[in-house]
């Protein structure tokens, strides 16, 4: 196992009741640069280490942005870090979304819940060079309005860019005036040519399955539906065995892979 490199927390922004976005900057030498979709192992001092995808890449100062939901001991400790404190970082690990390969295609970016975090740098990069791609669609699903990430940024994508942006929630509150329902219900109004589309899908596994199957049904080739998977990971270097999914080591062969490969594996219960 490689040893983590110290990074300093330089910004902490609350997203929801249990989720925050933290910006990190190398305290000394930086790690090699990350690509959207790749992940880091983040080490909370004395508590442990978990895999977290990059939700932002600051190329200017070699910084990393991670969106962390406090659900366990380590993510809870990472969520609790404030500017000025240190975190250990290893990486970059895993496959990336490979946005450059989608040049000339319509883009369909579909996120469920915290699954928007690894997709955010794809949206940012795509919107930074809109001429390279066809129509850009960003479809976001959230359980409740309060759990929606990056609210201001989504608003910006929606109003200040040419992208088609749609948001839906499963359980609306009194103030919610937008769409209600699962994220796949947003597909019919998205603007994309199925055969000329690359889809990027991340969220809970049932959401990934439902979205990918819907897209296949609409004619998007399975290998151009890229999904990001989550498994338990202890090392991220292919040595601990925890992230196996059939023939795959998700840390090495994933987390991003084509639906053509993921579909049969996710179809087997408890694989």
């Amino acid at each position: 196992m490689t040893t983590p490199v110290p990074y300093e927390v330089v910004r902490w922004e609350s997203e929801t009741a249990d989720t925050a976005t933290v910006a990190l900057r190398p305290a000394g030498a930086a790690l090699p640069s990350f690509r959207p979709g790749q992940f880091a192992m983040l080490y909370a001092f004395g508590v442990g280490e978990i895999p977290v995808s990059v939700s932002g890449i600051s190329r200017a100062d070699q910084g990393l942005v991670h969106t962390i939901r406090a659900v366990g001991a380590v993510s809870g400790a990472l969520y609790g870090l404030r500017p000025g404190t240190s975190v250990g970082v290893r990486g970059p690990f895993g496959t990336d979304w490979d946005l450059p390969a989608a040049r000339g295609h319509d883009l369909l970016i579909v996120a469920g819940g915290i699954g928007l975090a690894p997709l955010r740098p794809v949206v940012v990069d795509a919107l930074a060079e809109p001429d390279r791609y066809g129509r850009v669609n960003v479809l976001v699903g959230s359980r409740t309005p309060d759990e929606l990430l990056y609210r201001a940024e989504i608003g910006h994508w929606s109003t200040a860019t040419a992208a088609h942006v749609a948001v839906t929630v499963d359980r609306p509150d009194d103030r919610w005036t937008g769409e209600v329902g699962v994220v796949t219900a947003l597909l019919h109004r998205a603007r994309f040519r199925p055969h000329g589309t690359v889809a990027f899908v991340c969220g809970p596994e049932p959401m990934i399955r439902a979205t990918a199957r819907d897209l296949v049904h609409r004619g998007v080739p399975a290998q151009r539906i890229r999904v990001s998977l989550e498994r338990n990971m202890r090392c991220a270097t292919g040595h601990c065995g925890h992230c196996q999914l059939g023939p795959l080591l998700v840390c090495r062969d994933g987390p991003v892979l084509g639906w053509d490969r993921a579909e049969p594996l996710l179809a087997t219960r408890e694989l």
Binding site: P6, Y43, G46
Partner: peptide
């Protein structure tokens, strides 16, 4: 043992393989 880490008075963390 994979690594050791020390936390200094200012909260800075040093990691050693």
């Amino acid at each position: 043992r994979q690594w050791s880490a020390e936390r200094g008075p200012g909260g800075e963390v040093t990691l050693r393989a």
